[in-house]
């Protein structure tokens, strides 16, 4: 884990309708190789990004959301998902994509569902916020 700055990438938008989320993932993947304390947050329609099993066949859009799993290969600190955003969209916590890290000493899922109040504390503790 880097001792550098705490950077939080905030994803607010769903996939495919616009390119914001796809390009935000590109930033996160680049940021992940820098030796900083990187986290991601998914709020509002951004929680749709972590629905597993997405198919874009027929949409002619790139299926990019599976690549969030690749974040587990880097030293990402945590992936936060706002509980209230899930609830109002009828999504269940147990149905979210897992982003698994840690080859030795057992794996762990980086995805953590938090309340909006908890997420506010996370946001306040960061040095840098980058939103899509």
């Amino acid at each position: 884990m880097g001792d550098g700055k705490k950077i939080l990438f905030i994803n607010r938008r769903g996939p495919y309708g616009t390119i914001y989320a796809q390009e935000a993932l590109e930033v996160a993947l680049v940021g992940a190789v820098f030796d900083q304390k990187i986290s991601l947050a998914f709020i509002d329609d951004g929680v749709f990004l972590l629905r597993p099993g997405q198919s874009t066949v027929g949409l002619q859009m790139k299926q990019f959301t599976a690549a969030y799993r690749a974040l587990g290969d880097f030293e990402i600190h945590r992936v936060y998902v706002e509980r209230e955003s899930l609830q109002v969209r009828g999504m269940k916590e147990e149905n979210l994509m897992e982003i698994v890290t840690g080859p030795d000493g057992g794996t762990r899922n980086l995805v953590k569902v938090v309340s909006s109040v908890e997420l506010m504390d996370v946001i306040h503790s960061q040095d840098v916020l980058l939103n899509d």
């Binding site: 950077i7 940021g31 900083q36 840098v128």
Partner: peptide, 16 residues
Amino acid sequence: LGQLIDASIDAERLLV
């Protein structure tokens, strides 16, 4: 994009 991450590390404030 490294130029964005680099700048966010070095600057005191990042504004989007």
